[in-house]
């Protein structure tokens, strides 16, 4: 019920893309990049996603193209090979930037390990309020970006997207982050900030509720009934978004 190509898009933009937010939310992440020469890594997946991640001044930014002046270039012969990088079964071999390999082995690995510690958090760590907030915020961004990748690539996700009208959907946590899922001609793009003029809104009443929802402890339909999830606007957009959200767990499990 899942496919490798969609998973590669999710791994690229939703998982590696969350390094952007990790560097903003956790000082330990930005410290790894501070006072270091800027460096960029291009990932080129044949028949799949492409992206360049640039690390500069303690921050991280991803673009969905291969920048010609990227310091390191890593090609993958298939989505499956790239997915292997993310699950640790494939060792990447750069075609450019051999002298920058220490960054891959040291800082980049520490960043991805840190990201993993938040994304697959141990229960006792989540008892720390700040860790909980960062972990849940990172999950939020990952899920929101994964929605767009599933809506654009997964066969059933594309069916859901085909029923969505144009406009911006705001997904937000009352005391936490917000994101926009922008729909244009049934293609989805996630922007990691709230829209100015949403056509539809889905708002979680608290970061705790959002976490419970992400962890599958509560159901969105039940939460709408008790008011802990509020929706308004073009509900057909929220309805189809929820159908795609149902598939996020299949890919990120």
């Amino acid at each position: 019920m899942t496919d490798a190509k969609t998973l590669a898009y999710i791994n690229m933009y939703a998982v590696l893309g969350t390094l952007e937010n990790l560097c903003e939310l956790d000082p330990k992440a930005s410290a790894l990049l501070t006072n270091k020469k800027p460096i960029s890594i291009a990932f080129d997946v044949k028949g799949g996603p492409v992206a360049t991640i640039t690390f500069k001044n303690g921050k991280c930014r991803m673009v969905d193209s291969i920048l010609p002046d990227a310091d390191i270039k890593i090609p993958f012969s298939s989505p499956e090979k790239f997915n292997g990088l993310i699950d640790g079964t494939v060792t990447p071999i750069p075609t450019k930037g051999f002298t920058k390999i220490p960054f891959l082995l040291k800082e980049f690995k520490k960043l991805t390990d840190l990201l993993s510690s938040y994304m697959r958090a141990e229960p006792e760590k989540l008892e720390d309020e700040e860790f909980f907030r960062i972990s849940t915020s990172l999950m939020f961004y990952t899920i929101c970006v994964a929605v767009a990748q599933i809506g654009n690539n997964d066969e059933i996700g594309k069916f859901s997207a085909s029923h969505m009208v144009d406009g911006d959907i705001m997904i937000s946590i009352a005391d936490g982050p917000a994101a926009t899922v922008r729909v244009r001609n049934h293609r989805l793009v996630t922007i990691k900030k709230a829209p100015e003029n949403p056509r539809a809104v889905m708002e979680f009443s608290s970061i705790r509720l959002a976490r419970d929802l992400f962890d599958g402890k509560v159901n969105a339909v039940a939460c709408i009934g008790d008011g802990s999830i509020r929706m308004r606007g073009m509900i057909s957009m929220v309805d189809n978004l929820n159908r795609i959200l149902d598939r996020v767990g299949l890919y990120l499990a």
């Binding site: 339909v221 039940a222 009934g225």
Partner: peptide, 25 residues
Amino acid sequence: KRAVEVIPSGVYGHLGPAEGCFIPV
């Protein structure tokens, strides 16, 4: 509150607040 303890989503289907689009609930 009593319903959600013993009935999935409290009131399911078109008579319920989710499918019925009770906005705001």
